[in-house]
Amino acid sequence: MDLFLQLLANGLINGSHYALLGLGFGLIFSTTRIVHFAYGPIVTFAAYTAWLISGSMGLPLIVGIAGAVLVAALLGTGSYLTLYRALERNGAPPLIPLIASLGLTIVLENLVGVLFGTGVRTLDVDSSVHFLGPVFFTSIHVWQVVSFVVIAVALGAFLRRTRYGRAILAMTDDPEMARVIGIDTLKVSIIVFALGSAISAVPAVMVLLKDGASTHMGFAAVFMGFVAVIVGGVGSLRGAIAGGYLVGLVESLGLWQIPTEWQGSISFVVLFLMIMLRPQGLFSMARK
């Protein structure tokens, strides 16, 4: 039972991480319909930027986080304006931006190595240990959950209560109709690329603090973000959150009785089951 409770806690912590990645990825994907795989290396860039500012230059962590958020937002916006926008203007079929995003992923991944080196980077922070009965967690685990809650609440408020937020929701529902009723879809696309990428910087810094950053950490980030969005339902940010938690919990609790060598397969199994049994995802229908 102790192990079950610990795995449940791990699942909730990991779920918060995946949900945050899903929020950033889903915001971009749901609004623009662009499968932005370069989201992965942008996560990596953010982590290495935080390391550069707070580790190498010795500035406070909050400055490192701010730098990571800024760099991620700039890279996200830059990706859209320099690559995807041009493809949209040329009327490229949907497969082309997907291939372009894979190319951009490789370029950015290599650029991280060129700019920051290929070694693993860590940032030492005082991470205290807490026990809740038999369940163990660190202060970084707490930060992971808290950062998700704060960002999810803030994003929800932004989407519902601001003009641009409502424009994003309108474009998410129907991009053509949004254009017809006068929404500046170019501006909205730029905002979601900036915002979605900025959100990704937070889980990136958490990975840096918790496990260390590596040049290849972006793959897991974009993959889990993608799975969270598909499982939760494309177009629903609530779905991305639910998808993230579902994957986190199944991944953790699923290993309670089955060997850990199957860990890597669990998120795929969840993805396949969802595609086969409920292709619209958990929340997509609920929105309609």
């Binding site: 102790d2 192990l3 610990q6 795995l7 791990n10 912590i13 990991n14 163990f136 990975v207 496990d211 590596s214 290849h216 950490m217 897991a220 991944e251 953790s252 290993l255 060997p259 850990t260 060598e261 860990q263 890597g264």
Partner: peptide, 21 residues
């Protein structure tokens, strides 16, 4: 206990929890 870690893994909390238990 025998717990497996994938090459390039970044999250091994579950494996470690099982070893601890």
């Amino acid at each position: 206990a025998t717990e497996f870690v994938e090459l390039g893994a970044s999250n091994i909390d579950t494996q470690v929890a099982k070893i601890r238990a």
